[in-house]
Design a protein around this nucleic acid. Structure first.
Lengths: 121, 121
DNA sequence: CGCATATTCAACCATCCGGTTGACGATCCC
DNA sequence: GGGATCGTCAACCGGATGGTTGAATATGCG
């Protein structure tokens, strides 16, 4: 069961966390590997992952000494569905997303799809 | 131009603010009228409206001594488009939203689609 | 065993957030 | 002009948030 909207949107409000989600889109990852691109302590990333987990946006499974993080799209769907209540805007235009993505990548500091590297800060 | 995702998601993370957006879906409203259903000071609501405005989710226009608040769906679309990047979940199922809505309304304190009335708190 | 790796815990800090109250500035209207 | 209404500003408060560091807990491996 996805967590409530408060937690979901709050989790999405941080660029580091959105970057993490984007990374996890690629593949499941261990905590250390998630932390790698960020110039931030491992503990900080661990906290971010807890926030994402409590929001239901990811799940974590410990295998051996490494804890694997997995994207959980259900929570995102919950939020997306809420937004659709504001149905005044058109059905999704995928090209929209392409354009948005390029804009994001062109200036990573602005929106946080790209992992933040030291240069960004 | 919609504000950045940080501001948008942060604005959406508060149930009072989501309620306000839902109310504005109905019609444009004056600040005082927005504040009416909440048992909270006018100043607090004024701040919430500022947050929504800075996120680009609403615009405010002063006519005479009353300031009208208007929903701005573009910012919401920005966030929605971002979410679609996580395209692993199905295209929108409108029934999904119906079900979600009923659940929300059955227990308003849980998610904040219904304006919070004094009884809720 | 004993060391290295993976991750969290605990304490701490600065800042932000959501709320309050009281004073203030505009505007309408008699 | 002057009172009522609309809304914001400023100061304050408690609690959450995002980060740090250092110690602690597992787990894997030679």
């Amino acid at each position: 069961m996805p967590a409530n909207l408060d937690a979901i949107f709050a989790a999405l409000a941080d660029p580091t966390r959105r970057s993490i989600l984007t990374m996890l889109l690629e593949d499941d990852m261990a905590v250390t590997d998630v932390a790698d691109p960020f110039h931030m302590s491992l503990a900080a990333i661990s906290k971010h992952l807890s926030v994402l987990a409590e929001a239901g946006l990811i799940t974590q499974e410990k295998r051996g000494r490494v804890k694997w993080c997995k994207l959980e799209p259900d929570a995102l769907r919950t939020a997306s569905v809420w937004m659709r209540g504001f149905g005044q805007f058109d059905p999704l235009d995928l090209d929209d997303f392409e354009r948005f993505l390029s804009a994001e990548l062109a200036q990573p500091e602005a929106g946080g799809l790209a992992p933040r590297t030291p240069e960004d800060i």
